[in-house]
């Protein structure tokens, strides 16, 4: 094992739906979600996902958006000209020159989650690298309440990275390790990541194992997002997206505290839930295109 551990590790990917022939489609649209960590593009042929690309966000939004869409259409035979309308979303949405409209990630996320999980979804909790979003939506995927916390690192992937770094544990193992404790410790009491880190150092000095400290932090994080969910009104049909949704230590404690389980991904679902925002964008693009055609 090397000493340099990559704490935030994920692979860039792409996907083409073999069951869709875009040449037969009447409308091709796309959604591009430029986030702070990753950029996603989803291409839609009529009502089906045709392809998607998932890339690391580079130093500027226009290039990141272009990289993502190019990666998505790679090998499909599609060119940018074939895509009739593009909606930009995410943190870098206003800097995508080839997008016809920018729509907030809140609205796109709700719409995309509705597509991925179906109309049953009411509450979406998106815990990303640098923000945390709680969204409440109706059966059509329209937002009925939201909050987005990007001011404070507590409750975000960044906070978890600080702890992974402190304990020299790869971020992907944090969840599993936090569950390997004999007794659930009380949660870390500081919300602020800076203070929580000092608290963690203190716990280690008291002789706590790494697993115990991780358990205490995962449970603090779970508790924190529960309070965010309470603000927007929680309904039991909830789903989790974003990087932290892959951390079983946080997810299982969250489910325990809420007393309900997250809605599982449908069996035939082939898409990474991280694509929710981009898919929502592509769906908005389709509606906007239909509206503009009607206007003529």
């Amino acid at each position: 094992m090397t000493t340099q551990v990559e704490y935030w590790r994920w692979t860039e990917s792409r996907y083409t739906n073999p069951e869709v022939d875009w040449r037969k489609a009447s409308t091709i649209t796309a959604g591009i979600d430029v986030g702070s960590v990753s950029s996603k593009a989803a291409v839609m042929a009529d009502n089906e996902i045709l392809a998607y690309g998932l890339m690391r966000t580079g130093s500027n939004s226009p290039d990141s958006a272009l990289n993502a869409i190019n990666r998505a259409i790679e090998g499909t035979g599609l060119t940018m000209k074939d895509i009739k309308f593009i909606v930009g979303t995410g943190y870098g949405r206003i800097n995508i020159p080839f997008a016809g409209k920018a729509i907030t990630e809140i609205a796109c996320h709700a719409r995309g989650a509705n597509y991925i999980w179906g109309p049953v979804v009411r509450t979406i909790l998106d815990m990303g690298g640098q923000d945390c979003k709680a969204i409440h939506c109706d059966e059509k995927g329209k937002v009925t309440a939201f909050l987005m916390n990007d001011k404070c690192a507590a409750g975000t992937g960044r906070g978890m990275e600080v702890f992974a770094d402190l304990l020299q544990v790869p971020i992907t193992q944090v969840g599993e390790m936090s569950l390997q404790v004999d007794k659930e410790p009380p949660p870390v009491s500081s919300t602020c990541v800076v203070f929580a880190k000092s608290e963690g150092i203190g716990l280690l000095r008291q002789g706590w194992s790494k697993n115990m400290v991780l358990a205490a932090y995962c449970s603090a994080m779970a508790h924190r997002v529960v309070t965010l969910l309470e603000r927007i009104g929680m309904e039991k049909e909830f789903v989790l997206t974003g990087g932290i949704s892959k951390n079983i230590g946080v997810v299982s404690r969250l489910e325990k505290e809420l007393g309900i389980q997250a809605v599982p991904l449908p069996k035939d679902q082939k898409f990474d839930p991280q694509l929710a925002g981009a898919i929502g964008g592509a769906l908005f693009a389709r509606d906007l295109l239909a509206k503009s055609r009607k206007a003529f």
């Binding site: 001011k151 404070c152 690192a153 960044r158 906070g159 600080v162 602020c192 990541v193």
Partner: peptide
Amino acid sequence: AQCAVFAES
């Protein structure tokens, strides 16, 4: 950034 962790980056 307002948060110390984000301000660090």
